[in-house]
Design a protein around this nucleic acid. Structure first.
Lengths: 224, 224
DNA sequence: TAGATTGTTAATCGATTAACAATC
DNA sequence: TAGATTGTTAATCGATTAACAATC
C-alpha cells in the first residue's frame, strides 16, 4: 500500500516546477553514469557536485518527486534513477518525427544521444523530392505530403522541427492538426500553437549572441 | 554629448538581467526582419506580439539598454536594432572555433544561421587524422594537437564544443588555457571552468525529455 | 548512541506583470 | 489638444538558498 502510494506520488501526482523539470534530465544522466560505475548510493552533496548545482536545490528538486532518500545515508542510485525516469515519462515509449532533413536535421537524425537517452526517431519527413525515398541513418525519408499519415501511423506525439524558417509555421500547424502535442523547434521563428501543445525552442545563433554579450561585458564595457 | 552618453549607456553601462539578455537575441532577430520589410517604427505591443512575450516585459527589457522609444509613437526599428546589437557585443567581430567535427559539428559548421546573425566559424578542430586537412563548408579542419596555436593565431575567444563527452573536459581545459573565455557546450557533461569563463549548455536529449514530461502530464498523470 | 544526511522551513533574491503617470 | 505609447513603479510570483529539525 505504502509502496503503491509512493509510486503514484512519483508518477506526476505533485506539481513539479518548470525549473526543476529542466534539471531532472541532468540528474538522470549523471545517475545513469553512476549506475554504470556500480555506485549504489549517492548523497545530495555528491550528486549536486556532479551536476553543478547547490545541494539544497537538488534536495528540494527531488522532494517534488516524493521522499526517496534515506537520512544519514543518501539516495539509492537505482531507485532514484527509476523515479526520475518515471517522472519524465520515459517509461512509456514515444515515437519522434523529425521534419526537415537538411544539414541540421540529418545530424540530429543520427545523434546518438537521443537513442541512448530514451528516444527513437521513428520518422523523417522532407519536402525535397530528391531526398524523399532515401535512407538517413537507417530511417526512410518520407514525403511531406504524407505528413498526416506518417504521424497517425507511427502514433507520433513529439516532433523535431528543422525546416527552413519560412515554412516552419505551416509545418507546425499541420503537425498539430495531425495530433502532435510537443514540438522541439530549431527554426528561428516564434511558433503559434494552441494551449495544449508545448513548444521548446533551441536557437543556436541566440546562444552565441548571449555568449557575445558576456564577452563584451568582460572586455571593457563599463559597469557603473 | 548627449548622443555619446546615450551610446555609452547602451554599451553595457547598466546591469542587464540574464533573463533579459536571453530575450534580446529574439528581439534582434524579429527587428532585423522588420527592417528588411522596410518597417520604420514598431510599438512595444507589436514587437511583443511578434516575439511572443508580454509587452510590459518587453518595455522593461528595453529600458535596461537606455531610453530609445518615443512616447505616443513607438521605437524606431533601425535605432533599436543597432542598440540591441551593440548591447550584445555584435558590433565587434569575434571569431569562433568549433572543436569536434563529427555528425553534429559538421552540421553546425554549415549552419547558415550563425553567419546571418553575426558569427563566423573561423576554425574547425578535430582529433581524427582522417578528417584533419579536409575542408568542411569551406573551412580547413585543423589537428587538435595545434589547438593552442589555432586559438592564438585566429584570436578566438568563443568556442563551440561538439566532441564526444569523454574528452569534453580535457578539450575545455585546453581551450581555456589557450585563452577562450566563452564556450557553447553540446557535449552531455557538466564542464568545470574558472569564474572568468562563461559556459552555455545545449542538451538536445534533455530538451526531448522535458517535452516527454509534459506529454506524460497531459496523458493522464494525476494532478492532485 | 553518535554521526551523517535528508526533507522542509523561511528568508531572500530575481523575474514577471498590471497599472499608470509622463510625455510625445 | 486628444490620443497613443513609453518608461517606471509596485505588487506578485516563482526560484534559490541557508539553516536545521527529523531521523536513518
Amino acid at each position: 500500500m505504502t509502496v503503491q502510494r509512493e509510486a503514484a506520488a512519483g508518477n506526476g501526482a505533485r506539481v513539479v516546477p518548470d525549473a526543476t523539470v529542466a534539471r531532472l534530465a541532468t540528474y538522470l544522466r549523471v545517475l545513469t553514469g553512476l549506475g554504470e560505475d556500480a555506485t549504489t548510493t549517492v548523497s545530495s552533496e555528491e550528486l549536486a557536485a556532479a551536476t553543478g548545482v547547490n545541494s539544497a536545490k537538488l534536495r528540494k528538486d527531488l522532494s517534488f518527486l516524493g521522499s526517496y532518500g534515506i537520512r544519514g545515508v543518501g539516495y539509492d542510485v537505482a531507485t532514484l534513477t527509476e523515479q526520475i525516469a518515471r517522472t519524465l515519462g520515459l517509461t512509456v515509449h514515444r515515437n519522434v518525427a523529425l521534419v526537415g532533413v537538411g544539414n541540421l536535421g540529418q545530424a540530429l537524425a543520427g545523434y546518438a544521444g537521443f537513442a541512448s537517452r530514451g528516444f527513437r526517431i521513428a520518422a523523417l519527413i522532407d519536402a525535397d523530392l530528391g531526398r524523399v525515398g532515401t535512407t538517413v541513418h537507417g530511417v526512410a525519408v518520407r514525403n511531406i505530403a504524407d505528413l498526416e499519415h506518417v504521424v497517425a501511423d507511427e502514433k507520433i506525439t513529439i516532433a523535431v522541427l528543422t525546416t527552413p524558417a519560412a515554412v516552419a509555421q505551416d509545418v507546425c500547424d499541420r503537425l498539430v492538426a495531425a495530433g502532435v502535442t510537443s514540438i522541439l523547434n530549431f527554426a528561428p521563428v516564434v511558433l503559434s500553437v494552441p494551449d495544449h501543445v508545448d513548444v521548446r525552442k533551441v536557437d543556436l545563433a541566440a546562444e552565441l549572441q548571449i555568449l557575445s554579450f558576456h564577452e563584451n561585458r568582460k572586455n571593457g564595457a563599463l559597469v557603473v
